[in-house]
């Protein structure tokens, strides 16, 4: 085979690879320690929850210092989407309406407080989760929330949803 036909054959082979993958295959391997914690989400069954724990009492202090100005002194006043319900501001208070308690932890840890997201430690986020759940009467005041106990919290509204994607796919509701 001439040099030229070797090159041509190689080019054809890589074009064939490309066609198989549908692209040039330029993705670089991603090491496990390269992705930040917020690239995933705690799942309802607890997968993805980091180790840590907190109580409502710890949470109450952090809440008063870092959350109350936007969400209300006791969690029902707002003005912004109060997490405790029922309240007069928001029909979907996180601690009553959301189907899984894991979401409360994961969301606070990545997104709150609004002006300093990701500034809380895992323990602080667990404590705030415990505070919100206990204020909603979903857990007892003295309960400790950990990566192990959080997935077991039975949220009161969980079975009150129809899954539209599962029942009718992309057809608009």
């Amino acid at each position: 085979m001439s040099m030229r036909s070797v090159i041509a054959a190689a080019a054809l082979a890589s074009l064939a690879d490309m066609a198989a993958a549908g692209g040039p295959g330029l993705g670089v391997p991603l090491a496990a320690d390269e992705s930040p914690f917020y690239a995933i989400y705690a799942m309802p069954d607890g997968r993805g929850l980091p180790p840590g724990s907190g109580t409502a009492a710890d949470g109450a202090e952090i809440y008063a210092a870092k959350c109350a100005q936007c969400h209300g002194e006791t969690g029902i006043e707002g003005p912004i989407m109060p997490p405790v319900g029922p309240n007069d501001v928001w029909e979907k208070p996180a601690g009553k309406y959301w189907p899984y308690a894991t979401t409360i932890f994961a969301y606070i840890r990545r997104a709150m407080p609004l002006d300093a997201p990701k500034s809380l430690s895992n323990n602080e986020a667990y404590a705030l989760t415990a505070f919100i759940l206990s204020r909603n009467g979903v857990i007892a005041e003295g309960d400790t929330i950990t990566a192990e106990t959080l997935p077991d919290v039975a949220m009161p509204n969980r079975d009150n949803f129809t899954d539209v994607w599962a029942t009718q796919g992309a057809k608009p509701w």
Partner: peptide, 21 residues
């Protein structure tokens, strides 16, 4: 994953009090 938005803000409460997600 039941992220914040698909848990609350972007679900709809129906006339009968149940919700669609």
């Amino acid at each position: 994953a039941y992220t914040k938005h698909e848990s609350g803000e972007y679900t709809e409460i129906l006339a009968n009090g149940s919700s669609v997600k």
